[in-house]
């Protein structure tokens, strides 16, 4: 078991390393290979009005002429121990997880990321609770009453749910619930959980439901398929042969078997989502990581984009790690290996 945990940990760290190298290469190596000069890279750091001399000085100061592995080393060092950055006029210390400074705001990226992550995490976690509960419940009922009116209706709605884009459902929801009927606060509202949990939930209700609709549909379909498969297993027949009430057969024996594959998908979905729910955040004007990334891309603000990419990769890797460990808890056969 310990070896299993260690192996998973190493895999996660390896994944992060690879992602960081790829990200770094995309932002620093690929442009150079494509013919952009060191000055070309540096020009983004100094604004449009800078003279050629300032640009050249910046390029030298940022070390864009150094061999690429030296640059990567500096970048990695910044993440782990922080970095002293020569801003020309003054020197600034960028503390430990240093992901550089935004070109636009001139602020260190990491603290901004943390703020934004709180919003995205609130959004993702709330939506996840809704879609897991709702999706699994609908999926189980559908599987148990396969072919019934409920099943067909639920699967039709699910198909619609998967096909409807979030920005559309989001806008419809905002128009009716918030502006017409005043049941929900307008878009762009966010109250931190620590400040007032109730307002936090109230403000996020609409985005949660919108996002959850998309995922519930998917999870209902997956749960249904999984349940249909497990309910046909021999051990379900055994459970019935013992005289267990059908409820117990379904929940304790059927669902437990059907949920394991869902766990994998959930880990991946949740990890991806807290890396930025771009469409939902945009639709509801929430200042989350997704919106931060979009802003970064629009403003050609490289450090922002890189920061979000790395953070998203970290979340996906973490989520996968947690899933792998949960797998071992759920399935004793994994533990043995």
């Amino acid at each position: 078991m310990l070896a299993y945990v260690i192996r998973r940990l190493i895999a996660a760290v390896g994944l992060l390393f690879v992602v960081s190298v790829i990200t770094f290469s995309i932002f620093y190596l690929v442009p150079r290979l494509a013919g952009v000069s060191a000055e070309g890279l540096a020009s983004r750091y100094v604004g449009r009005t800078a003279t050629a001399a300032t640009v050249a000085a910046t390029a030298r100061r940022m070390g864009f002429d150094d061999p690429i592995y030296v640059q990567y080393g500096r970048f990695a060092k910044g993440i782990f121990v922080g970095e002293d950055i020569d801003l020309g006029a003054e020197k600034d210390h960028c503390p430990a997880p240093c992901l550089g400074y935004s070109f636009v705001t001139k602020q260190p990226v990491f603290p901004e990321l943390v703020d934004r992550a709180k919003v995205t995490f609130s959004l993702a976690a709330g939506a996840a609770v809704i879609w897991v509960v709702f999706g699994i419940a609908v999926g189980v009922l559908s599987a148990l009453r396969r072919g019934s009116l409920f099943d067909r209706a639920a699967m039709t709605v699910a198909l619609a749910g998967v096909s409807l884009p979030v920005f559309w459902t989001g806008l419809i929801a905002l128009t009716f619930f918030s502006y017409r009927w005043g049941l929900a606060p307008p878009g762009g509202t966010f109250v931190p959980f620590t400040q007032n949990p109730l307002s936090w939930a109230h403000a996020l209700m609409l985005p949660w439901i919108t996002l959850a609709l998309l995922f519930s549909a998917q999870y209902a379909r997956l749960t249904r398929a999984g349940m249909l498969e497990t309910m046909g297993e021999d051990y379900i027949r055994t459970a019935r042969a013992k005289g267990l009430p059908e409820r117990k057969v379904v929940v304790k024996h059927g669902l437990r078997g059907a949920l394991t594959p869902l766990l994998t998908i959930f880990g991946l979905d949740f990890g991806l989502l807290i890396g930025g729910a771009v469409l939902t955040e945009s639709a509801f004007g929430l200042n989350g990581l997704g919106k931060y990334a979009v802003d970064g891309i629009r403003g050609n603000d490289l450090p922002k984009v890189m920061g979000v990419t790395l953070l998203a990769a970290l979340f996906v890797a973490l989520a996968n790690l947690v899933v792998d460990l949960l797998y071992a808890v759920v399935d004793p056969r994994v533990r043995a290996k």
Binding site: A241, K242, G243, G257
Partner: peptide, 18 residues
């Protein structure tokens, strides 16, 4: 299970693995 019980062909698949 109480008055009538059953055993099956393949005991591996007939028992819940978890």
């Amino acid at each position: 299970g109480k008055r009538m019980a059953m055993i099956f062909q393949d005991p591996l698949s007939a028992m819940h693995p978890y």
